[in-house]
């Protein structure tokens, strides 16, 4: 199976590339990147070809492509892949706005290619186990949830809204919003958010606190802030507390760690759990191989999660709740 990668702008690209190298029967055909230095460096590192233009890469008879460009370029790259008949794994957030995301979904459907949103957290072993416990009814009925996906400010294009679509809210809302939708099987109905720029020097939203109302009566909050400082022992977190009628569940997806104390670097966490990027890419590859009609995590999933972030920005502007139907209209 022939897979390509469009752009190493997003740091997750390296993780996906090394995952592709580990999967038997998969050939990483090439890396396209408008930044020649970056593209050549990673092409050399992963022993594959470099392409200046993504059109040239897409012309190599690919089965699938991973899109890890800046958020604002997702649409252009996904539409080109769809047109070339290549299945797509697109980095989150699916897009910078609802309209583009809808166009991407439509194009992939029209050209009969899979559009999978890269939500690796769905493939985290602890998250999957939590989902299993929920599905087995161990918690009874889900009543409420409390999630966090904090991190460090990544800087670079992530803090340039013309490329990223926004800061912490668009970057970090989507993972846990997706997990909450997955756990409950319900859609977000209404969003309230307090959003601000309180930490970074660059003017970008780096603090976000969302409150969500689901269409089945479940409520939740989600902290998506880039509030981890430089010396915090880990990059961030992915946590979810679930309050059920029969019990509670506390999920801390990256808490499989060693505590490491070094004279030079100080205290840090060393993660030893399963590689969720590998599981994600394996899933994408197997969907292609089996000729699946839908990806396991779809473009629609990506759109719904993105719409929650968009609603959060709108809520903060209005200082009031925002209905998801208005955002998705």
């Amino acid at each position: 199976m022939k897979i390509g990668i469009i752009s190493f702008a997003h740091m997750h690209a390296a993780g996906y590339a090394s995952a592709l190298m580990q999967i038997e029967g998969v050939e990483l055909v090439g890396i396209a990147d408008p930044v020649a230095e970056r593209g050549q460096k990673y092409a050399a590192q992963f022993g594959t070809s470099y392409f200046q233009s993504y059109e040239d890469l897409l012309a190599q008879g690919l089965d699938g492509v991973v899109v890890t460009s800046e958020n604002a370029y997702h649409k252009e790259h996904v539409l080109a892949a769809a047109k070339a008949g290549v299945h797509v794994l697109c980095e989150k957030p699916l897009s910078t706005n609802v309209k583009d995301a809808q166009a991407m979904i439509e194009a992939c459907r029209a050209h009969g290619v899979l559009l999978q949103t890269a939500f690796p957290v769905r493939f985290n072993s602890s998250v999957r186990r939590a989902k299993q416990l929920v599905d087995e009814g161990k918690l009874g009925r889900i009543l409420a949830m409390k999630g966090t996906n904090r991190g460090r400010n990544p800087g670079g294009w992530f803090v340039e809204p013309s490329l990223s679509g926004g800061g912490a809210v668009i970057d970090h809302t989507v993972h846990v919003a997706d997990i909450m939708r997955w756990m409950t099987g319900a859609e977000v109905k209404e969003v309230y958010a307090e959003v601000d720029h309180l930490i970074a020097e660059t003017p970008i939203d780096d603090c976000g606190m969302l409150s969500l109302e689901f269409d089945n009566g479940v409520f939740a909050t989600l902290d998506c802030s880039w509030s981890r400082n430089k010396t915090y022992p880990v990059w961030g977190d992915v946590t979810l507390e679930i309050i059920g009628s029969a019990g509670t569940l506390t999920l801390n997806a990256i808490n499989q760690k060693l505590n490491v104390y070094r004279d030079e670097q100080g205290y840090s966490h060393h993660f030893w759990g399963d590689d969720m990027d590998l599981a994600l890419v394996r899933d994408f590859v197997s969907s292609i191989a089996s000729g699946a009609s839908e990806a396991s995590v779809t473009g629609e999933d990506g759109l719904q999660a993105l719409a929650v972030a968009v609603a959060a920005y709108r809520s903060d502007e209005r200082k009031d709740t925002v209905s998801m139907t208005d955002v998705l209209a």
Binding site: L143, A144, Y192, S211, E213, F219, A220, T221, I243, S245
Partner: peptide
């Protein structure tokens, strides 16, 4: 704020406040 009050009959309370 959101809370379980008025949503469930069980002797449970849970609230998330911003």
């Amino acid at each position: 704020a959101k809370s379980l009050h008025g949503r469930v009959q069980a002797q449970l309370d849970y609230a998330l406040v911003t």
